[in-house]
Nucleic acid binder design. Structure first.
Lengths: 191, 191
DNA sequence: GTCATGAATTAACCTCGGTTAATTATTTTA
DNA sequence: TAAAATAATTAACCGAGGTTAATTCATGAC
């Protein structure tokens, strides 16, 4: 019972008509390293499927501090669920950490394409289930793990990401300052 | 374009056949205050729809500390998404904070009931979207807000919950100790 | 009313992480 | 290769939150 992933656009079970609609609304874009894909506060109902490169999603607080929500690499996708569902501005920024190539699709176009397809709806269900589950994991980590433990876990779980990002960004993902991360790295091994 | 909520079991668009199946598998249970509904580590694929009472979902760490994931009151529902999707043990406990009356439904029964219904799938999509969105909010709060700010926000957002729970449990939800919460409450107002 | 139980507060002490700022790599560019 | 820019480390100081334990407050039970 493997469900087709929403991430594999080509494999989506769409009929000729719906398929061509999607094809038409699909846009290939590219961004340079450090370029912003969309800003916090800006309405953005696009879905971005990463062909190559690395993206960070981050909040900027009122005091101007940056906190990182997530890193997404090739094969992954991102978009502002909040903006898509409410029509209001995104709660976070999306920034390219490496030169980036993406397939861009409008959220409503995709939803409409799946409007009458049971199979597509199941793919949506599956996608959002997984999303909810991954958010639960992160909630668990914030509640139950120390910064030290979160660091260790992230390194073990995403070594390929760790090697591609600045230590400073990793710190902002863990919810601590770059200085604190530097310190705890060199701390006596530690639980 | 209001979608029927998964929470309103009676209103679900189910045909006579699927409906009766659901009716049959539906179980009315009740628990006493302080009773455990299911334990961390225990496989539990049930969905619990709360008719009355209040529940807390909490993690117990290896050191025996409790951290609270969420509070759910009448009209809400809960279940272990992780257990349902993977078949493994739940990552958290569910405990009644007040005498509790619930409608219990098996996850797979509900999924099967919606298997061939486009409408039901849309209800699922909607439900998991909202779930993912609410988890995102919590992630934002842990990343961007201080314990003080989280406390203030929770009081404003869920005054009816605040009045029904022990301060100690609220602290464990905020990710701090009861002592720390007591302190910050009495701190110079403070941003 | 008294006693007992549990909840909340307070105090003293300690650790971790934040802050500012200086220093030392490490890249990049010229 | 030197100079400039960016990243990472280190130090000194501070405050928030953890820990233990004692104290005060509430609530029931008898």
């Amino acid at each position: 019972m493997t469900t087709i992933s929403l991430l594999d656009l080509q494999a989506l079970p769409l009929t000729g008509e719906a398929k061509s609609k999607i094809q038409k609304s699909l846009n290939k874009l590219s961004f340079n390293k450090d370029q912003t894909i969309f800003h916090q506060g800006e309405v953005c109902t696009s879905l971005y499927f990463i062909r190559s490169g690395l993206v960070k999603l981050s909040y900027i607080t009122t005091e101007g501090k940056e906190l990182i929500k997530s890193f997404i690499a090739e094969g992954g996708m991102f978009g502002s669920l909040y903006s898509q569902l409410t029509g209001e501005g995104s709660t976070f920024n999306a920034t390219a950490l490496e030169d980036l190539a993406v397939d861009v699709l409008d959220y409503t176009a995709l939803i409409q394409a799946g409007e009458n397809s049971l199979e597509m709806q199941k793919i949506f269900v599956n996608f959002f289930q997984q999303l909810a589950l991954s958010k639960e994991m992160r909630e668990y980590e914030f509640l139950c793990l120390s910064a030290q433990q979160r660091y260790k876990k992230f390194c073990e779980q995403y070594p390929q990401i760790v090697s591609r990002i600045r230590q400073a960004d990793l710190a902002l993902y863990l919810g601590i300052t770059p200085i604190a991360l530097s310190r705890l790295k060199h701390r006596s091994s530690g639980e």
